[in-house]
Design a protein around this nucleic acid. Structure first.
Length: 249
DNA sequence: CTAAATGTTAAGCC
DNA sequence: GGGCTTAACATTTA
């Protein structure tokens, strides 16, 4: 569930709750006092990268699905919800196995919307600037890590990472600093473009069949086996083709 | 059945 | 404090 486009789908599915009063709030979350939500209207439902933000007049709740989180709209799973919200129209929103946290009420001061690849405010020039700054700070910074950096590409996850690098034909072990300007530009451009393709495919329930690299065995361009390794600061799975993805640096 | 996976945070250690 | 590594969390799928 967790990459940025999936959160956009959640926001769309829950749009009708904006403006409605929360008539019931419960769940096994220990991090917030759910009673404080009851009786309050939903001011906004927003996303920033992989964060889902529920804003009411007196507080903002942040949901993060981590690796295994799920949700249901107007339905329940056979599991105790971490947070369950009931609305004035009889509808409900249930979250499971996720992180729930109260954050600063001034969300615009806390979040750089220009960093969210799904946002209207996404700023590719700023992303390029951050990449150049990262390369300057750390000459060994890898492109596979840069794509997963939520301060630069909020919403990009491991699937998007693998697909973007395949599309732009860059080896995940390349260093950011060694990328030619055109590749750096392509990296930023595809991070957004693929995220929107992901969104459309996920909505149509055809996302997996469009994976060209992630979880794949053979390069669809070269018809040779993909290399697979756990790379980068956080040892995430990478799939790449040694023939058509070039290693820089 | 076991292992691994769309992710982040906090603790522990130089 | 900084930077790095490790553990913890929790659920579904292969």
């Amino acid at each position: 569930m967790p990459e940025g486009p999936s959160l956009v789908i959640l926001k769309e599915q829950t749009a009708r709750f904006v403006g409605q009063e929360i008539v019931r709030a419960e769940g096994n979350t220990w991090a917030i006092d759910t009673a404080r939500l009851v009786g309050q209207p939903v001011v906004s439902l927003r996303t920033w990268g992989k964060h889902f933000l529920i804003q009411v007049p007196t507080m903002v709740v942040r949901i993060h699905f981590l690796l295994f989180g799920t949700y249901r709209v107007d339905e329940r799973r056979d599991k105790p919800p971490r947070l369950s919200l009931g609305f004035a129209d009889g509808g409900e929103l249930n979250f499971y196995a996720c992180s729930v946290k109260e954050i600063d009420i001034d969300i615009d001061a806390c979040y750089d919307w220009a960093a969210d690849v799904m946002s209207d405010a996404w700023d590719p020039a700023l992303a390029r600037k951050k990449l150049r700054a990262e390369a300057k700070k750390n000459a060994d910074a890898l492109v596979c890590d840069a794509l997963l950096d939520q301060d630069i590409f909020a919403g990009v996850g491991n699937i998007i990472k693998n697909e973007v690098l395949f599309r732009i034909r860059v080896d995940p072990r390349s260093t950011v600093g060694a990328l030619p300007p055109a590749k750096l530009r392509a990296l930023v451009q595809e991070a957004r473009q693929y995220s929107f393709d992901f969104l459309e495919w996920k909505k149509a329930f055809v996302l997996k069949k469009h994976w060209l690299a992630h979880n794949q065995k053979t390069c669809p361009r070269c018809h040779i086996p993909f290399h697979k390794a756990h790379l980068g600061r956080t040892n995430r799975r990478s799939f790449w083709c040694e023939r058509c993805q070039k290693r820089y640096g």
